[in-house]
Structures are given as structure tokens and as C-alpha cells.
Design a protein around this nucleic acid. Structure first.
Lengths: 146, 146
DNA sequence: TGCAATTGAATTGCATACAATCTTTATACA
DNA sequence: TGTATAAAGATTGTATGCAATTCAATTGCA
């Protein structure tokens, strides 16, 4: 199999490196998020809400690159656990506004140290981490244009 | 909200950049894989098998960083569509060996050009793509050690 | 050698992702 | 001003991911 096309080798795939790396990174978060009773997707949703409260499902979807098929059930779970409320926007009944509860806002304090703890396990310098993140953000923007 | 802790901003998260980038990359593959009737995970599984046929579920899991909970149903689907066969290893009845069918092997030809077509949409130079992939592979290795 | 511990898959249960479709509300414009 | 179109969520269906558990086969070692 020495003449196997090099462009099909798994080791040669940027897509797989991304896919594997993303999942491994999520695994590093899991023990910390377990303590807060959150999944990774719930966590990033809260990151958005902690920055800007009272946003629509549409806005959340634009920030997180997720659609209502993913967000609706996830938000219902966060509502059921008492971290957020969901309510139709009086100004536009098509929209649903998501708001943190007291409890949801309080959780932010317990999350503050998680990114740093995880980052320490990556073996990256701050400089390398930033460069890599910027490169990935640039790549996301490029892929969304196509 | 100007005093919001910078380390919790979504834009500052390497984990989210990876998560978003991985999903966007998979979206670029989708139209091409649809033509072959494959999902992304089925595709990377076949990448492994095209390189080395007749491997165990355990070996597949080690290459793809997936466990039997994900692989077993996926492999059953590939078997149902006639691309692979699954059989207990006579030398160790605990293992299941996965083998390509004629049809499964034939599909490789139609997949050969996909990585290049997708890569063109990333806007990366070959040099940048390789560097990024190597950085991600190194990061995966580092995260697996912890 | 006999049996406890380990290993490899499969199964179960839960939480995403995402395409496709449906429902409700808002908007545009003939 | 009706009405066609568009927009925002919700729903449905399919396919992962992964933890936890179960089951069968193998291995290690007292």
C-alpha cells in the first residue's frame, strides 16, 4: 500500500486534526463543567449570556454558529434547571428572548477560573494559544464566505 | 459590562475557535460526501480502512479517537450499505475485524479529489495548512498525555 | 491449573448537530 | 389594504459522541 494517494491519508487531513482536537479539548473541560452541572454546549451558551444578557435565540445562534434545532432543546434544559428564562419579545412575537436568572448569573463566578485551568493542560504558551486561536477564527470567517 | 472578565469572553476561547472551526470544516465536506452517501464520521472511518484494511474496532478507535459506543452503530450502517464486513477475529474472539468490500474499496477513487476541493475553499496556502495541521496534531498529543 | 482481573465490543441513555418541515408573526408592495 | 413573502422558532428524524454498564473471551498469576 506504499502507493496509496497521500492526499487521502488520515494524518494529512486538516479536517481530522480539527475534529480530533476539538473533541480532545472538550474532554479537558468535562471534569470542570461536571462540577457546574453543565455540558460544553451549555457552557458556551452561558459565555454569550454572561457577556450580553437578554439576547434572542437568533443572536445566540449567530454567535455560536448553531441553529434553533440545536438551541431550542438546549435552552429548554437550561430553563428547566433554573439558569435562564425564555420569553417572546413583546416588540416582535417571532423572537424569543433569553435572560439569565439570578442563579444563572451567579454561576459565572464559579466558571471564571476554568479557561485558565484547561489552558495549562494544553502545553501552549499564551502567545502560541493566541496565535492559534486567531488563525482558527480567521479560517472560520473564510469558510463562511464560501 | 466593560469589567467583564476577559478570560470568559467567547472571542478569547481557543476551545470555541476549535469547536466552531471543526463544524464549519465539516460543513464544507458535506456536499461532496452527500454525493457518496457518506457522513463525515463514516468518511474518516473509510480513510483509515483505505490505508489499512482488515483492522479491529479497537484499532479504528485508536486512530479516530472514538470508542465502541460511537463506532459499533456506525460500522453496522456501513455494513448495511455494503461498504464493509464485520467479523470476529478467529485468533481472539473478543476482537471484531473490519474489512472493505469490493464496493467499499471502489469508493476510494471517487473520494480522491475531495480533500483538495475542500482545501481550496479554506483560503489557506499549502504551507499554512500544513503548519496549522501540525500544530493541531501536536496539541492533540499534548492533551492526551494529561 | 483455577480463578480473579483485564480486555474488546455491544448496549443503553443522554445531549448534541443539523437538514427538512411546520407554525406563527411581521413585512413588503401591488 | 389584502396577500404573498420572509423571518424566527419549534419540531421531527437521523447520526453522532461519550459515559456507564454488560457480556464474553483472554490473560495473569497465586
Amino acid at each position: 500500500m506504499t502507493d496509496y494517494p497521500v492526499q487521502l491519508k488520515l494524518e494529512h487531513q486538516l479536517c481530522f486534526a480539527l475534529y480530533a482536537c476539538s473533541r480532545e479539548m472538550t474532554k479537558l473541560y468535562r471534569p470542570f463543567l461536571d462540577e457546574l452541572g453543565l455540558t460544553y454546549t451549555q457552557y458556551v451558551t452561558l459565555l454569550v449570556l454572561w457577556e450580553q444578557d437578554n439576547v434572542s435565540v437568533k443572536q445566540l445562534g449567530e454567535e455560536l454558529l448553531l441553529d434553533s434545532g440545536t438551541l431550542t432543546p438546549l435552552l429548554k434544559k437550561l430553563e428547566a434547571t433554573g439558569l435562564i428564562t425564555r420569553a417572546r419579545d413583546a416588540k416582535d412575537e417571532r423572537s424569543v428572548l433569553v435572560q439569565l436568572t439570578e442563579q444563572g448569573r451567579a454561576l459565572q463566578v464559579r466558571a471564571t477560573d476554568i479557561p485558565e485551568k484547561v489552558f495549562c493542560q494544553t502545553g501552549l504558551s499564551l502567545e502560541e494559544g493566541s496565535r492559534l486561536r486567531e488563525k482558527l477564527q480567521q479560517l472560520v470567517r473564510e469558510m463562511q464566505e464560501t
